[in-house]
Nucleic acid binder design. Structure first.
Lengths: 219, 219
DNA sequence: GTGCAAACTTGCAGATCGTGTAAAAATGCA
DNA sequence: TGCATTTTTACACGATCTGCAAGTTTGCAC
């Protein structure tokens, strides 16, 4: 009943079949992104993408739930329990920064294919409508993220009411996501490994955040 | 050649025609929102909305550029020059708070019909997909907003480079929009005039913003 | 009122998106 | 090789949204 014969890698379950499927999906994404760079996002149809990827339009929808999902990626960043535990406990940085750093790591981890990642970034930057869809998709998970932050807040500020925790969780997520978005463009300029630079960029950003939220700094 | 016979109101140009059109649009929006509350966002088609509004589906698309635009409102908040000037000069609050307050006012001003406003809020809260679209739509204008903030930053921090101004403008907008979004739900609970309470809510929020971005506040 | 010109509404055809369904093809395995 | 399972594909369909060419209403001058 249970898997045997797994002497190969640490990845538990990936046979010929799974690998082919994964590669076909990646090829489809690449095809879609390339077409966007060539003709512009608005001029790219599912039929064109399927054509270039060598699959039927119907199969395209077996792979991805929508045209946008193929371009932006179906999966969204989801920190695992270990990352969450670290986030909840660390106290060397502010709540917002701690969350921003965790999300930056989760984001990088959720997309192992860096070339695809960069390609996607370029397309998003060149298509404002697509950028809007992207932000909307990410925003769908804000409630979940806020719940994670609420766990940290509950541990650190026991006096907060439930309503306050919810509000501050939402607020923390909004600020952190905004900060990540603000440096995302800069981040993609880096040529080497991306996790390091992003963490550093986020960290460098926070003195600015504090200044911008501090009352009457000038004069 | 120029308008005469304008003894009525201060609104300069609105004849029978304009008024009828405006009312038909508002009726269409109301019809769409009501249907969403009755049957759920996903089950509402353009045909249903047009039916209830007493117009043809084709006319629906003459009024609104998309189904979402009808539900969420075609127009987006756009502060006028006077508001911008005030925003740039005021120094009793932080950059982010000043911008958040201006946007809150512009938002309230962009939608004079408060009943419609509340109705829309209820629908958005009840339909996560629609909320995502809404956030995406608002995000489309972030670049414009960031440019406005950059004008204030240029006046207050002359030493910033262009790149820094752009980054901090983007960041300010992201934080402020997040803050507004975080209190939007609370805001709609108020029964009376909305501008006052929103400004107050935003103001009350900022001590929390500072605490959440301050490093290691607890032990 | 009458008639005209402009603006508005409508129906229709068409392109595209996205889904259900069932047949066809590929795949894994004994 | 043959069979069972999965995957791909074709087809039909409802929905969104757009151009276009009517038809209808409106404002206005006479």
């Amino acid at each position: 009943m249970h898997d045997v014969q797994q002497s190969e890698e640490c990845v538990p379950t990936e046979g010929r079949r799974e690998r082919k499927l994964r590669e076909a999906k990646a090829a489809t994404q690449r095809a879609g992104l390339e077409l966007c760079l060539e003709h512009g996002y608005g001029a790219v149809t599912v039929e064109m993408i399927a054509d270039r990827a060598g699959i039927s339009p119907r199969t395209f929808y077996n792979y991805f739930s929508s045209r946008e999902a193929a371009l932006l990626g179906d999966g969204k960043p989801r920190p695992d329990e270990a990352m969450i535990a670290t986030f909840i406990e660390r106290d060397d940085v502010s709540d917002v920064e701690a969350f921003a750093v965790m999300m930056a790591e989760a984001w990088a981890k959720s997309e192992p294919d860096k070339a695809l990642f960069r390609l996607r970034r370029r397309v998003i930057d060149s298509a404002p409508e697509l950028a809007a869809v992207n932000i909307g998709r990410i925003a769908e998970d804000r409630a979940d993220y806020a719940a994670i932050v609420a766990r940290r807040l509950a541990a650190r500020y026991p006096d907060l009411t439930d309503a306050e925790r919810e509000l501050e969780g939402t607020l923390t997520v909004a600020i952190a996501m905004g900060a990540i978005q603000a440096v995302a463009k800069e981040w993609m300029r880096g040529d080497d490994d991306q996790t390091g630079p992003l963490k550093a960029l986020v960290h460098d950003l926070f003195p600015r955040v504090r200044r911008l939220t501090q009352a009457a700094p000038a004069s």
